[in-house]
Amino acid sequence: MMEGNVIKYAQDNIDTDVIIPGQYLKIHDYAEIAIHAMEGLDPDFHSKVSKGDFVLSGKNFGCGSSREHAPIALSHSGITAVLALSFARIFYRNAVDGAFLLPIEIGQDAYDGISDGDRVAIDIACNEIKNITTGQTYKMKPFSEIIGKIIAAGGLFAYNPDGD
């Protein structure tokens, strides 16, 4: 069970160029990358994010570049999960394979029913998201089998297919 506050961006197509602008891709220190997370969209993000927070957004989150700096920037800012109506696939795999954060696909009900600042609990085992602020509970889309296993293992390198 994960619990945290939601930072909501009620829009589709949040791209990796606004999650971490190109000029910061030369930085190798993860803590320093994190300072610039979401800078292209919300320059206040770094000052308002706390450890354990979630980002909530619309369709096609993480579209664009394959830069793994995008999930790294969010993860090292303290974000443990991104909840979105859908994800661009490279972002999704980067988040999972590097064990940076959980990309959680939600339905329109959760998207509409969870507001900026709400406190939310995510129960991966039951595929459930509870909005603690309002008391409402929503279903999340379950991870596919292999994605679930990579997450459980702690990333692609830790995943041992022979253990299947």
Binding site: G64, S66, E68, I90, R93, N94, G155, L156, F157
Partner: peptide
Amino acid sequence: CGDSHTSTHGAFGALALGIGTSDVEH
């Protein structure tokens, strides 16, 4: 390639996929 525009090479009938750094390492 660790670059989303790897899809370019598909013009030659190759299956060309953009990947991130963890997958590059793999």
